[in-house]
Write a protein that binds this DNA or RNA. Sequence first.
DNA 1: TTGACAAATAGTTTTAAATCCTATTTAGTA
DNA 2: TACTAAATAGGATTTAAAACTATTTGTCAA
Lengths: 148, 148
Amino acid sequence: MSEVQKNWNNKLIDFHGRCRAAGLKMTPQRVAVFKALIGTDKHPTAEDVYRDVRLEMPNISLDTVNRTLLTLVEIGAAFVVEGTGQPRRYDGGMDDHQHFRCLKCGKIVDFHYEPYDNIDVPAAIGHYTVLRKTVYFEGYCDACTHDN
Amino acid sequence: MSEVQKNWNNKLIDFHGRCRAAGLKMTPQRVAVFKALIGTDKHPTAEDVYRDVRLEMPNISLDTVNRTLLTLVEIGAAFVVEGTGQPRRYDGGMDDHQHFRCLKCGKIVDFHYEPYDNIDVPAAIGHYTVLRKTVYFEGYCDACTHDN
DNA sequence: TTGACAAATAGTTTTAAATCCTATTTAGTA
DNA sequence: TACTAAATAGGATTTAAAACTATTTGTCAA
Ligand SMILES: [Mn+2]
Ligand SMILES: [Mn+2]
Ligand SMILES: [Zn+2]
Ligand SMILES: [Zn+2]
């Protein structure tokens, strides 16, 4: 088995484990949505995932995709990308990384800068339960900077 | 004139200037929306602002409130708070600060930690046009942490 | 001060994202 | 293999935001 396949397999096993731990059934729909999400670095919307999964599973419903994506977030197998105002964008890449979002074309680009992996929680909000700490950039991507 | 009044007045003068610079008319609706926004630290939705402004200006339309808020963002007199999927939350506080959002009650809390005001752009995205740099926390606020 | 006109608004309709509803199917288990 | 709670499909509903259009209004130049 190749490294890539091994990595893929580990993710599926991990997903299986998370579902069991949470008392969730392993349905084909769940697996399909999970695979679609971890198979891309494009930070898709629910509609994007729906379109993708339907190629293999034409009868899946949009509601199931939406529900499943929320479930993935709940069990820690995915998260919602930070950003402002638009439809939710999901991310199945659970390795430490940060995001840049292009305000013109909507592209969300991963990058990794280690000092931002675990930034300090300032005293001012120290008494809150902090579940997620994010460093996030917005602007125009290369293509959008240069055209126009 | 008190310090508070002076500060308030400066913001209106600044707003006036920004409108002129952008070639925008000074309408009573615009002023009312702007005042409503800078008069709160609650990060209101468009509906919130609508409700508020209508007390003084009962005939203003929701569309005007939405349009005006977007206009304020365009001319740099306000911005949209980070966070997707829910209704947009607006912020008229243009002093440097950061946000914590409670995932349970939706409250958005301002805090200010100077080292986060102007963080480094990593080399990986150095060629992009970075317009906004954000440090952002999510979790449960005090009340929501304790009442479970 | 007035008149012309582009910009902005009110009121409404339309679109789009997400959630809700319910009859039916299914994964886990004993 | 049969049972049951959980999950799904398909459709309806809700909600935020944008689009549309007739009317009104700031702005500016005469
Ligand atoms: Mn990512
Ligand atoms: Mn704020
Ligand atoms: Zn772009
Ligand atoms: Zn809270």
